[in-house]
């Protein structure tokens, strides 16, 4: 039973790493803004998954050690982290969504905006240097 549980946790760790990697790669490769935002969320999901797995794992391994130092146990700590991370991820996603909506909206209303060069394109040009 114990061995089976250990395996399950390792399994979780592997999955979470895969999800994380997938999200990151996609984040770097995709140009579409919404897709990037989703990729970012996927990455976040991977991280949180990993934290949960770690929490489960370390409560087995170092629970005794934590008890010695008077700590409340790693799982509680990690779970607090996960919850906070979740909240923050939601906040960022919301902000990102608002920004994307505005950018798309601006593009729609302006049509082909041939005005001054935007700072971001200036940045793109610098990248080529």
């Amino acid at each position: 039973m114990l061995e089976l549980g250990f395996d399950a946790i390792t399994w979780y760790l592997v999955i979470s790493t895969a999800v994380l990697m997938f999200g990151m790669v996609r984040l770097l490769l995709v140009r579409d803004l919404v897709a990037r935002l989703v990729a970012l969320d996927v990455t976040g999901l991977g991280v949180l998954l990993m934290l949960v797995a770690l929490a489960a794992r370390s409560s087995d391994e170092t629970g005794a050690q934590a008890a010695e130092t008077g700590a409340a146990g790693p799982d509680a700590v990690l779970q607090a982290l996960v919850i906070t991370g979740l909240v923050i991820a939601v906040a960022f996603t919301g902000l990102g969504a608002v920004l994307i909506r505005r950018i798309e909206g601006a593009k729609d209303t302006e049509g082909s905006d041939s005005g001054e060069e935007s700072p971001s394109t200036a940045g793109e040009r610098d990248r080529d240097d």
């Binding site: 994380l20 990151m24 984040l27 970012l40 990455t43 976040g44 991280v47 990993m50 934290l51 770690l54 929490a55 794992r57 370390s58 170092t62 629970g63 050690q65 934590a66 130092t69 700590a71 146990g73 790693p74 700590v77 990690l78 982290l81 991370g85 923050i88 991820a89 960022f92």
Partner: peptide, 20 residues
């Protein structure tokens, strides 16, 4: 966000090892 996710992973790992 990407940066903070990596940071968070590191923190989680540290917490898992040290329990605090």
């Amino acid at each position: 966000v990407l940066g903070s996710l990596l940071f968070l992973t590191g923190v989680g790992l540290l917490a898992a090892v040290t329990g605090t």
